[in-house]
Every structure is written in structure tokens, then in C-alpha cells.
Simulated assay, not measured.
Amino acid sequence: MRSWGWKAEAGVFLGVAFVAAGVFGAVQPATGIPPEVVQLTQFGPAVAVLALAVLWPARIRRRLTGTPRADTRGARAGAPAGWLLLTAPLITALSAGAYALVHAGPVFTDPRALSHPFLLVALAQWVGACGEELGWRCLLQPLLRTRFGPLTASVLVGLVWGVWHVGVFTRPPAYAAGFLAATVAMSVVLGLALERIRKGRLLLTGGFHALVNLGMLLFMDEESGAVVPMLLFGAASLAAAALWAVRAGARTPGVTIAAARHSAL
């Protein structure tokens, strides 16, 4: 069990997350909940976490506490948390600024023009983002960190996170490529930040996720299927990830083989 236990966890998690998201997407029209407020598919990863908690309660409880304890020694909670939340508007600013140059002018959606009150949309976006991050960054990231270094684990989570948005692949290949670049890059940002954050992981990752979504809602129009804004979003996310990777440098500790084996038990 020790040699393949982490693979079983990952397999069950991914299977349930994909199926649950598909079911939620199918039933959402019948619920009357507007997708522009919150997409029920976002709660697929949270359902997967609950499923794993039933199968392996003690093990999943350890996963949800974060990366191996040795990885957070010397962490300063305030600094990485603040930088993480500032990175979200940075990605929006880089994306929107570049798009304004290409588009010959800024793109902006007045919050008052939305079909629902902006405060409701913002709150729902944060709740939905937390539904995703409970699975991606609070469970899958710590799980993969028992076997891989922080950068590799983050890239793997980002790839899965991107592929999980299966609807993206009905768009042009360049659109899907830009989206995958964004999910991998943002996953690197989140993964490196979590190496030094002890508390409030779900609130912070959900906050980052929601801020990015709201920024794109107000200052970009990639949801229309336009390729250029999605490519710029991906490029901006990669730039932010590069800054985090440079900042982390040698300070980002790798997980030792002994620690990995111990955490995988």
C-alpha cells in the first residue's frame, strides 16, 4: 500500500473531481443559478476531497494541513500571503495593459452593467474559487509534494487543473494553449507561495483565484472565445510565475526521499 497509496489517492481524487464537475454542469440549468454568478462545476474538486476523506480520513486530514512540516520551517506568514494576493492584480494589469495596446484601447466592463450586483458576483466567485482550491491546492498539491519538488508538483497540478476545464478544448488550439499556460503558471505561483504559508491556505488561494477571475471579468473579454486576450493572459501569468520562481530561488526547499516516504504512509 505504501508504494502506490499516493497514486490511489490521486486517481480517486481526479476521477471524482472530473465526474462531479460534469454532473454539476449538467444540472446547473435546472437549478436556476446563473453561471455568470457561480459555476457549480467549481465544486467538483471539493466533492472529490469529501470522497477521499471517507476512504482515508487520517491521511486526508494530514494532506489538508499542507506540505511536509520541514518545508515550512522559517516561513513568514505575512510576506508570502501579501505577495500572493498582489500577484493577482499584477496578472490582470499585465494582461489588460497588453490587450489595450493590441486592441487600440482599454477594455472595461462597468460593474454596474453586470446582470447581478457586483458584490454578489464577487462573493460567489470567491466561494466557487474556494470550492476548486480545496481540491487543487489544499489536497492535490500537498499530495504531489510528498513525491516531487515544489516546481514539478505545481506544474503537474496546473496541467490537471487546465485539462479539467474540458470546455476550453472546444475552442481554437491557440486559445486552449493560452489557457493551459495560464493554469500552469498560476499553479506555480500558488505552489511556491504555499511553501511558506502555514495558515489560511484555502482563504488565500481562493482569494487569489477569485481576484484573477474578477480582473478578467472586468478588464478582458477572453470569455467570448477571442484568442488574443487568452494568449496575453497566459503570457502575463507566465511572467508572474517567473518572478515567483526567481524570488524563491534556492530558498524553496525540496522534499527529501525520507520525508516523502514518511508523508506517503
Rank of each mutant, 00 (worst) to 15 (best):
W4N: 08
E9W: 09
G22I: 03
F24M: 13
A26I: 02
V27R: 11
L40K: 02
L40R: 01
L40G: 00
Q42N: 15
F43I: 04
F43Y: 09
G44D: 01
G44T: 02
P45G: 01
A46P: 12
A46G: 09
V47R: 10
A51C: 15
L52Y: 08
R63K: 14
T65H: 11
P68W: 04
R69F: 07
D71R: 07
T72N: 04
T72K: 01
T72E: 08
G74H: 13
A75E: 13
R76G: 07
A77I: 08
A77M: 10
A79H: 04
P80T: 06
A81G: 10
W83N: 02
L85E: 09
L86D: 11
S95K: 01
A96K: 05
A100T: 11
A100L: 14
G105H: 12
D110W: 15
D110C: 13
R112P: 02
R112D: 14
L114E: 09
V121P: 01
W126S: 08
C130D: 06
G131F: 10
G131W: 07
W136M: 11
W136R: 06
L140C: 12
L140N: 07
G149I: 12
P150N: 06
S154P: 13
V155L: 14
G158F: 10
G158P: 05
V163H: 12
V163M: 15
P173S: 14
P173T: 14
A181D: 00
M186K: 00
V188Q: 04
V189A: 06
K199C: 13
L202D: 09
T205F: 01
H209N: 11
L214G: 01
G215S: 06
M216K: 00
L217A: 05
M220W: 00
D221Y: 04
E223D: 09
P229I: 03
A235G: 10
A235Q: 03
A242L: 15
W244Q: 05
A245I: 11
A248Q: 05
A248N: 02
A250Q: 01
R251A: 15
T252V: 14
G254M: 14
V255T: 15
A258V: 07
R261K: 06
H262Q: 14
S263R: 14
A264C: 09
A264K: 11
